[in-house]
Amino acid sequence: MSTYLSIVIAKSRVNPVRPMALPRLELVAATIATRLADFVLKALTNVKINKCVLWSDSQITIHWIRSHKTLPAFVENRVREIRTGSFDDIKYCSAEENPADLLTRGITTNDLNRSKLWWEGPHWLKGGK
């Protein structure tokens, strides 16, 4: 059985007007990823998906999601939503290998169109990190 890998959907967001700490921004990104995964899994009913894994380059976010400690209200509300998502696992991906970070670093449309990282993902993804 072969593995097929393709970008299905992407979303980027600008920083809010009120400054927010980077760990909270990363948590919001994980919340958006959860919503996107739910949307895609519901939309692709005719496609057999064996496993849905979300990737984050924020170790703090992953720690919050896996933690059983009492968290601040902002964090707890988003963690609760993430935990009810349809994905199977959330794993760490370094910032250098994270395709989503291309958008946050600023990239021209020409460079994005030619980006192997954007269109194919990190080289190790097909191997199942």
Rank of each mutant, 00 (worst) to 15 (best):
D101W: 05
Y92L: 07
R35F: 06
A29L: 03
V75H: 02
N98C: 01
N98F: 03
L102D: 07
T3R: 15
I60K: 00
S58I: 01
A37P: 05
A21V: 14
T61S: 02
T61A: 02
L112S: 08
T104G: 10
P23M: 06
V14Q: 15
L117M: 07
R78Q: 07
L41N: 05
S56A: 01
A73V: 11
D111E: 14
N50R: 11
E76I: 04
R83Y: 04
A30V: 02
S6T: 11
L54T: 03
N110H: 13
F74D: 06
S86A: 12
P72D: 03
S56L: 02
N15Y: 15
R35Y: 07
H63I: 00
F87C: 04
L103Q: 10
T70K: 13
D101Q: 06
I62D: 00
S6W: 11
F74I: 02
S6P: 07
V8I: 15
D88K: 05
V28Y: 05
S56R: 02
L5G: 10
G106V: 09
V40D: 08
H63Y: 04
I62H: 00
A30D: 02
N77D: 10
T34M: 04
T109V: 13
L117N: 05
K51W: 04
L36K: 07
N98R: 05
R35N: 10
R18G: 14
T31W: 03
N113P: 01
R114S: 15
G106C: 08
P16F: 15
I62F: 00
A21S: 15
A33Y: 03
I65R: 00
K48R: 13
